[in-house]
Design a protein around this nucleic acid. Sequence first.
DNA 1: AATTTCCGTGCATTCGATTGCACAGTATTT
DNA 2: AAATACTGTGCAATCGAATGCACGGAAATT
Lengths: 352, 352
Amino acid sequence: MHETLTIGCTVKPVNERYTVQDVAKRAGVHASTVSRALNPATRHRLSEEVAARVVAAAAELGYVPNSLAASLRTRRSETVGVVLPDITNPVFPPILQGLEAVLAEERYVAMVANAGPDPERQRLVVERLLARQVDGLVLATVTRHDSIVDQCLKAGVPLVVVNRSEADHRVSSVVSDDVRGMQLALDHLYGLGHRRIGHLGGPQNLSTGKGRLEGFLLAARNHELVPAAGDVELASSFSREAGREAAFRLLDQAPDLTGVVVANDLLALGLYDVLAARGLSCPHHLSVVGHNDMPFVDMVSPPLTTVRIRHREMGEQAAQLLLRAVRGEAVGGMDVVLKPDLVVRASTAAPR
Amino acid sequence: MHETLTIGCTVKPVNERYTVQDVAKRAGVHASTVSRALNPATRHRLSEEVAARVVAAAAELGYVPNSLAASLRTRRSETVGVVLPDITNPVFPPILQGLEAVLAEERYVAMVANAGPDPERQRLVVERLLARQVDGLVLATVTRHDSIVDQCLKAGVPLVVVNRSEADHRVSSVVSDDVRGMQLALDHLYGLGHRRIGHLGGPQNLSTGKGRLEGFLLAARNHELVPAAGDVELASSFSREAGREAAFRLLDQAPDLTGVVVANDLLALGLYDVLAARGLSCPHHLSVVGHNDMPFVDMVSPPLTTVRIRHREMGEQAAQLLLRAVRGEAVGGMDVVLKPDLVVRASTAAPR
DNA sequence: AATTTCCGTGCATTCGATTGCACAGTATTT
DNA sequence: AAATACTGTGCAATCGAATGCACGGAAATT
């Protein structure tokens, strides 16, 4: 019986999907009346009685409107595209959750594409989304100088970038205050008594990587610390693997550091790996502060002190910004900068 | 300048999107010829010269076809809906990644909806996706008896369930071999010398919860272990929180257990919390085996011994199954059952 | 009672791409 | 040379819903 039933389609090959015509016939009215009766914005123009009759007929048939046809006519698809660099990076699911929640409230649906880091592929993905007539785009992929943004601006599609921003801020963005985050992290270490503090940074072509490095340098200056050349090392991407590689270099160059402010939790986990490999213990030999407070870093050993970013809210804000733009309510763009918090756990302590 | 440029739309209010008509005019041919020239399947019916001329004209205008219009006519949207219970559960991103990768290869796009656990909301979400004429649906939400599946079967939409399966297996599914997974877990503990082994289980309305409990009981019987009534405790959902609650009960009821096989890593983390709260150490006081090998459980303390499920591959298989169904290539449905592996880390040891 | 206003509904067109059918024009056959 | 086959392109209808316009009838006005 399993063989015979199966993948839906075969059960009922004749897809008896009803149209406004069918509903119209059943209700004894014209198709246009059905359209009006089913649209809350135009229902009032009909007599109560007819509207009710149509609604009843639609319900009886189990009528489901064809959004494609409606979108073709109205030029609004109530669909937005979301372009992610890597959905398995734990910061993105909460962002997506926030996005989706706000969009769903407004009957919008998200088309999610995992575009990866390759600009050519991103371009293709965006084109595909545009072909599907998305009403707007959320990009979580942008680099500081991003040709995809050019493409989108040229296409004239409402656009919001999230998590990372563009260098020249041409489009609305929702990001975290990276400078402030680094300030919090460095203040914390300084307060514990650290004076030899390094930075394990991220890629400088991403606003987060650059902003956090700048924040680090600024915060250091505030405390009249002067980081030596080898006290800063940059990872080639925000991944545990790249973190390992950069951490190796950092610890080789500056073995006397007592604390490291890391630009991202994944990188911090890479640093953890290196510490473990070298038989060094955290926080005893080295205090570590991460960035993002991604899920489960409270469970690693030692639980990671990190800068918390409210990713879900980031997604919510981005969705709201985008919806405003889609509706033409936005008079101008804006940058929303969320304030991060420091979450102190067990990876930081007074220097040995 | 930021104010003036902004959210895309305002930059170029006149959305000069070209149509086949425009391309046709420019190439000096009829619109239908443009359509044929741009479709790889029909291009051969045109003379090389005309086809080239059309392609050139399209490129010059930067023509982007309107997929909505095409879908309306062809009745294929090259879009599939993906319904998730909770995208922040770390098992889903890899599944989504696998799905998206296979779909993207075939030019399909995924509409992702985070429907939550409420069946009424799931129903709404599915209806919305159907209204958008998705070619198929992937459900990661199914319970053992699931009314949403009824709805989908009635609608006659190609359908695949992933991660969890339905009790009466009416639709194709891609799941892990839960019984085998539990066998691996229990064999491992038994091999270490454990004889008092308990089970921290999941909700019985989910195939994973039920299958893993059954697997546990079966594996216990294989070793001629007879679990006492209190040796099994079920969590109300697959979450760390529910894991904590159930773990409290389990440890109260059966304080002499030396090992616990847990139905899910999140539950295992809840158990970790309870052990920490009671000052018990893992694996010294209690060995713990998780299930899923979700990201970063190798970093928790102690690194979790767990049953690895290849979630990405799960997503890939599901996408392939669905695409076959969409194309009508599937003669029947099938259940794909992936074999899990045991990953031994530091949460298991010989009993004290 | 005659005229105007308004209201509810129907008609027909539109959105943009696809595709069955028809028809030239050329190539092939007898 | 005539008949046939084929090939490349155009024409027009179609997918399903939305909407400007018009019209008939009822209500309101004078």
